[in-house]
Amino acid sequence: MIEETSYTAEEVAALLKISKLKVYDLLKKGELPSYRVGKQMRVDSSDLEAYKQRSKGAGAGFSARQPNAPAARQPSPDPNAARERTLIITGQDVSLDILARHLERRVPGMRPLRSYVGSMDSLVSMYRGEADIVSAHLLDGDSGTYNTPYVRKLFVGQSYVVVHMLKRSAGLYVRKGNPRKLTAWADLGQAGLRFANREKGSGARVLLDEQLRLRGISTDGLPGYEEEESNHLAVASKVASGEADVGVGSEKAARLVGGIEFVPLIQEQVDLVMLKKEENRHWVDGVIAILRSDAFRSELLHMEGYDLSRTGDILYES
């Protein structure tokens, strides 16, 4: 028997040339059948091909299946499908994986899916209806506050709640021994400094850009500034390999990469954003209850570097 090829959400996104969040949205709406293997969602090649054919037919205004062609294989009905609600949780911090596990156990009928994208893309995806629980750590340099200024500008006229998740140390990744003597944000103006940078819209990129802006440091011609990495580990690794002199990220990633040192400069704030809709009420309340629970906090307390003193506090509610 020949085993059918299956694809991850990332592979489907690459094949269809769409964002991962759009793929998760298709899975969430049931337009693209999927199943779970461990924590990973898989899509069979036949279901992907059937979706493509349906899309072609919808675009042309008639069925893409020819009269004598066999019908695309339909997935077997899932007796729990009607009762199960998929929730897309965005962000890269490991605390969100723990939240997803607690949510699946404690809120019946919920199937959490994790999407590892940056803060700004996460908020935009929620605006488009493609994400449910958004994690953000976006600094507004002018006010010195995190997240709420961005949320209020984007979700005008919508009801939402911003709940505090945790604080963690962020700062500079530097090479062993800190040969460029980088100890403050102002030191990033040193001539010839080579950067390892994150992608536009990520919390680390916004943090760097805000600190450069506030100090009048132009990004024009900064070596490495335009080259983007998709996570903290990749930035730290470029510094460790000598390809860059400095990068911005969280302390946790620095502990996983040898050959670098970490210069703490700020306590960044990670918050969750959720839309307040009638159909969301029970799981939004469930998320807040989990954040405030001893069971959730005790798991995070065993991980160094988290400040949980305000975890579960409602910071803003529209």
Results as ranks from 00 to 15, higher is better:
32 L>R: 00
99 L>Y: 01
191 A>V: 10
177 G>H: 08
266 I>Q: 08
273 V>L: 09
85 R>D: 06
81 A>R: 10
86 T>I: 11
119 S>K: 03
178 N>Q: 08
157 G>M: 06
93 D>W: 03
97 D>M: 12
60 A>Y: 05
20 K>A: 11
252 K>C: 07
24 Y>P: 04
245 D>A: 09
34 S>R: 00
28 K>I: 09
169 S>Y: 00
132 D>I: 06
112 P>I: 11
129 G>A: 15
6 S>V: 10
70 P>E: 13
176 K>Q: 15
269 Q>M: 15
150 Y>R: 08
317 E>L: 10
139 L>T: 08
234 A>D: 11
58 A>H: 04
203 G>R: 04
209 D>A: 14
219 T>W: 02
287 V>P: 02
268 E>I: 15
159 S>W: 03
286 G>K: 01
248 V>T: 06
125 S>Y: 03
135 S>R: 00
58 A>T: 13
304 E>T: 12
1 M>A: 14
273 V>G: 01
71 A>T: 13
52 K>V: 12
196 A>F: 00
315 L>Q: 13
298 S>M: 13
166 L>E: 11
292 R>W: 02
153 K>L: 08
279 E>P: 07
15 L>F: 01
91 G>I: 11
144 G>L: 08
142 D>P: 03
64 A>Q: 09
62 F>H: 13
138 L>I: 15
56 K>G: 15
176 K>I: 11
234 A>F: 03
48 L>A: 07
47 D>V: 00
103 L>C: 02
13 A>R: 03
237 S>Q: 10
271 D>V: 00
199 E>T: 10
287 V>T: 10
88 I>H: 02
8 T>E: 01
248 V>D: 00
173 Y>D: 04
192 G>Y: 00
172 L>C: 04
68 N>V: 12
318 S>N: 15
137 H>R: 05
301 L>S: 11
260 I>D: 06
228 E>A: 15
262 F>V: 12
187 D>C: 10
13 A>H: 04
265 L>C: 09
318 S>I: 08
75 P>G: 06
284 V>M: 06
236 A>S: 11
22 K>C: 10
203 G>N: 09
292 R>Q: 13
150 Y>I: 08
311 T>W: 02
217 I>P: 00
164 H>D: 08
137 H>L: 07
69 A>Y: 07
316 Y>C: 11
185 W>G: 03
266 I>K: 07
77 P>Q: 10
312 G>T: 10
265 L>Q: 09
3 E>D: 14
163 V>D: 05
96 L>Y: 02
105 R>Y: 06
276 K>Y: 01
98 I>S: 11
16 L>P: 02
81 A>C: 08
99 L>G: 05
38 G>Y: 06
75 P>K: 03
168 R>S: 15
139 L>V: 11
100 A>W: 01
142 D>A: 15
188 L>Y: 01
314 I>V: 15
34 S>H: 05
309 S>F: 00
261 E>H: 04
108 P>V: 14
42 R>V: 02
220 D>K: 01
70 P>M: 12
96 L>I: 15
265 L>D: 07
123 L>I: 14
